[in-house]
């Protein structure tokens, strides 16, 4: 065994966010509070929370890597392994299930043919199920990366997948929530 080094100073993952991090640390009287914002940042930047990122966060916040690790693994939006370019998260909770979520999920899986880890062969999509995302009146719904897609039908899901494949974006994503719609 080799005794621990305190980490390699001046990490790579957060280098370009120095200013943001400096500001972030002013928000909390205790540095450790910045852990979730930094983990979220790493997840968004790298598609996963890498060991390098966790070590860097530990250094930034005067924590040990296990402290970052234990925190990271508690939260399901964070993943230690990379995900596809588009992370398709289908809500499977009761409220969406009542209005057809299972059917959509089956359809998506049949069409995108993800492997056991939920990722498509080309690595562009990762399909996973999630618990309630707070869109129960507009289910079935899914979240792809940061965006919500609601009141889904097979047809709509097909268009979304197509759009994303072609352009990387899709106009069908939700804007600010308003239900029932204003008459």
């Amino acid at each position: 065994m080799r005794p621990v080094s305190g980490g390699v100073a001046g990490g790579m993952v957060f280098d370009k966010h120095r200013d943001f991090i400096a500001e972030l640390l002013t928000r909390y009287p205790v540095k450790r509070s910045a852990i979730l914002p930094l983990l979220n940042l790493a997840q968004r930047e790298e598609g996963c929370v890498s060991q390098a990122a966790m070590r860097e966060i530990a250094d930034l916040l005067d924590l040990t890597p296990p402290q970052v690790f234990e925190t990271a693994t508690f939260y399901t939006m964070l993943s230690l392994k990379p995900r596809g370019t588009f992370h398709v998260q289908v809500c499977r909770s009761l409220m969406c299930a009542l209005v057809g979520a299972d059917d959509l999920l089956a359809w998506l899986r049949a069409h995108l043919e993800p492997g056991a880890d939920g990722a498509t062969a080309d690595g562009r999509f990762t399909i996973s199920t999630v618990e309630c995302l707070g869109s129960c009146a507009t289910g079935p719904m899914m979240q792809i990366n940061d965006d919500y897609y609601e009141q889904l039908t097979r047809d709509k899901v097909g268009r979304i997948v197509n759009d994303l494949k072609q352009t990387g974006d899709c106009a069908l994503k939700s804007g600010p929530f308003m239900m029932p719609e204003r008459k």
């Binding site: 909770s93 009761l94 409220m95 618990e131 309630c132 707070g134 869109s135 129960c136 009146a137 600010p176 929530f177 308003m178 239900m179």
Partner: peptide, 14 residues
Amino acid sequence: SEPGTFKDRQLMER
């Protein structure tokens, strides 16, 4: 996050 609840989201977004 309570399944079936989505009021706060509307308040925040609107």
